[in-house]
Design a protein around this nucleic acid. Structure first.
Lengths: 262, 262
DNA sequence: CGGTCCATTGATCTGCCTCAATTAACGTGG
DNA sequence: CCACGTTAATTGAGGCAGATCAATGGACCG
């Protein structure tokens, strides 16, 4: 059921695609793939990249170095996410993107993408959907910014769980969470100390298990409740069909070590 | 130099438009205009509006009612801003929009807009630019969320100042800021008490004057410095040309009471 | 004149930060 | 095989920014 190609998988979270559209996506995203080291900057702040970067494998983050000097993460990029789909319109990036793990990155020709958007309206809609969902996630982060640390943390984990789920990177109730507490700290806007303590409290409450980069969520409904999480803002096709309150167990396509090779 | 039509004015912040494009925008945005009371909800959370709302006059806000019950404002909409340009792609709104002042709202036919986007690439780019800038503002709000109250406050005022400036609604160093402290509170994620105290400190420091809904910024550079504000994320055409550190005095088209009739 | 909305102030409390160590895991070179 | 450096997680203690609770004052209005 799940396609091999990550971009196809991601976009089918919006609507089923015609075989022809899928083929276009495969052609587009499977050439020009490069490997990027963990910690290296994929796009610098102020740059104007020529082509469009797609994360094929691994985790990356949008961030800014704030006035006070700290790094502030504004978004996590998972496989299937674009770095800057529409950067062509702007003169320069207003933030940077860094690989948090080793990443496979595909560079798409921006002219080719433009052509496709004009020729395949269904695909154009699907890509627009991706952009809109990104905006929705951002709005949710704004809301999250001023919540209790534990709620914000729980919410973030719920978001990542659902996003990983919709690209088929869940293994039962577990997923690879290759983030250090410092990276979580920069995303949550806390101090490392408090991130650590909050994490421990979530653990003690039995809401999560996190060890060796593997996050398990034994009771998603409970975590969602703790984080005030409602997945409607992710605008998934299956939002209504799925009963989020009772996540099905069992394997979800890719096994947990699907990333470990990256 | 500044066009009468607010949408034209707004979009020319990206690039000059052909007369033909301007005419299209005028035709599109000057019919179907309605008046909305302050405090009334323009679009409900969960709705799927049929046509596209454009704020022609007045202030509005995107907000969510968070899990804890508080209203969280995620964006201020100024004249020339759309409520939901691309909502057609999604099934429903994931947040609501409320008029903060009496507003003039134009409803654009979404089919007509779609047609225009296909036919006038320059216009399509300009509209895409608007959407991208909105995303950039959102990212900046995420960054701002975890700053000292005074810095976040100063930054917000800088943002509003520049945005008002680029649609020609500045009067020298003054602008209409028709927000109650409670609304600022919901945008900054503080308590009303602390918003008030922070505001007072900004006043004492001589960074702003705010009275009767009129905000004056005697020394923009100083306020920008206090807020760690850099306008590059607003991606204005004139970003480089303007010397932000020394805002020119004198009238900027619309007089200060241009809104008072709304 | 009372009601409502908004700004303001005082006092107390707390979630989170900061500073400062300690421990564990891992790799690397001698 | 061990000493050492590095990076990440963890713990303790004290301090502060901002929350909360509770009033008060002013402006506007019917």
């Amino acid at each position: 059921m799940m396609d091999q190609n990550i971009l196809v998988r991601k976009l089918e979270g919006y609507a089923p695609l015609k075989e022809r559209s899928k083929q276009i996506l495969r052609d587009l995203s499977e050439r020009q793939v490069s490997l990027v080291d963990a910690g290296s900057v994929i796009i610098e702040d102020g740059d104007k990249p020529d082509d469009i970067c797609l994360i094929v494998e691994g985790w990356a983050a949008r961030y800014k170095v704030s006035h006070e000097g700290g790094r502030r993460i504004m978004a996590f990029l998972l496989p299937g996410d674009f770095c800057e789909l529409e950067i062509a319109v702007l003169e320069q990036m207003d933030h940077a993107i860094m690989a948090l793990t080793p990443c496979k990155v595909a560079r798409l020709d921006s002219e080719a993408v433009k052509r496709i958007l004009a020729e395949d309206p269904a695909l154009a809609d699907a890509l627009r959907w991706m952009t809109l969902v990104e905006g929705a996630i951002l709005r949710q982060w704004v809301v999250n910014g001023r919540r209790q640390a534990s709620a914000a943390f729980a919410h973030l984990l719920c978001e990542l769980y659902i996003r990983m789920k919709s690209i088929g990177l869940l293994d039962g109730d577990r997923l690879l969470l290759p983030l250090t507490q410092e990276e979580l700290t920069d995303a949550l806007g806390l101090s490392t100390v408090h991130t650590n303590r909050t994490l421990q409290r979530l653990r003690e409450r039995g809401l999560i298990e996190l060890e060796g980069g593997i996050l398990a969520i034994p009771d998603f409904a409970a975590l969602a409740d703790a984080g005030g999480f409602d997945d409607n803002y992710l605008h998934r096709r299956s939002s209504r069909a799925d009963s989020l309150s009772r996540p099905r167990s069992g394997r979800w396509s890719a096994p947990i070590d699907s990333l470990s090779s990256a």
